[in-house]
Design a protein around this nucleic acid. Structure first.
Length: 274
DNA sequence: CGTAGACCCTGCGCGC
DNA sequence: TGCGCGCAGGGTCTAC
């Protein structure tokens, strides 16, 4: 479900509902996520503590608690994190919940169980292997053409997987990789070795523009992305190429193509992406 | 070292 | 209608 914009939208929508609230208890109904949930550590990190703030790093949501504890949540492909009334019965695939004071609970629903819930002392986040080798945040101001050019200098291969490599830049998944390459008019199979200064600059700007716009529109709802209040996003109306194979390119009118790249669908316009 | 493919898991839409 | 297949926004591991 989520790439960077969806997680950022989630963070913003959950912040007013969670910050300052105390967690009464924790329920783990299904611990078998991408990595087993350590229910004891989760309870230690959250129970009896107040939510201090919500941060986002890459596609992770970091829930900081008083007492220097953090619970990192990754939604994988199908995860949904929402605040619901405590008397609402558990949904199918509701694997865990943080019970809040005031009769609500924060619950994780994740049918495919590719998600991740990771309790960790706040001060130790930087050393955790999940976060230690992550690349730069694309919207933090340091992403530009020179950064991409230097990061690509030692590499070969097509630009799309490069753009999705979280060791370089985080947060760009399959949807926004296609969209950013379209916006920059770069063919997804173009080798990084054959991209010059100008194209790198165009691409860096396209990435930031596309992500920022998606956040502004509440994220992309391909199937059922919802924010913390259950609202869906509207960016799918703005998708230029993703999931639009066979339809005309909004820029030049040629038919949008879908091709497999590294086992994943890539969408592009053969007319105006080179 | 880098890259390509398999794999984790459930649900859905499609063609037969 | 029912069934099998391919595909899905994530990341990690193995084999080359």
């Amino acid at each position: 479900m989520p790439e960077l914009p969806e997680v950022e939208v989630l963070r913003r929508s959950l912040t007013p509902r969670l910050v300052g609230r105390r967690v009464r208890g924790v329920t783990v109904r299904e611990a078998r996520l991408r990595e087993p949930v350590d229910a004891t550590a989760l309870g230690r990190a959250a129970q009896g503590r107040r939510v201090q703030r919500l941060r986002r790093r890459a596609k992770y949501l970091w829930i900081d608690f008083t007492g220097g504890q953090t619970v990192a949540v990754h939604l994988g492909m199908s995860g949904r994190l929402t605040v619901v009334a405590e008397d609402l019965p558990p949904a199918p695939h509701e694997h865990l919940a943080l019970h809040l004071e005031g009769g609500e609970r924060l619950r994780l629903v994740d049918p495919r169980r590719f998600g991740l819930v990771l309790p960790c002392p706040t001060a130790a986040l930087g050393d955790d292997p999940h976060f230690a080798s992550l690349g730069i945040e694309p919207l933090a101001g340091s992403l530009d053409g020179a950064f991409l050019r230097h990061a690509a200098a030692s590499r070969r291969g097509p630009v799309k997987p490069f753009l999705m490599d979280s060791r370089v830049v985080v947060g760009i998944g399959n949807i926004y990789a296609s969209e950013a390459l379209f916006a920059a008019r770069i063919h997804p199979r173009r080798s990084v070795a054959r991209i010059g200064r100008e194209r790198w600059q165009r691409l860096s700007e396209a990435v930031q523009r596309v992500l920022a716009r998606a956040i502004g529109e509440g994220g992309t709802t391909v199937n059922d992305f919802v924010d913390g209040e259950g609202n869906s996003g509207y960016f799918q109306v703005s998708l230029a190429v993703y999931d639009r194979q066979g339809l005309p390119c909004p820029r030049c009118g040629r038919v949008v193509r879908r091709e497999l790249q590294g086992g994943r669908s890539t969408f592009f316009c053969p007319g105006c992406q080179r």
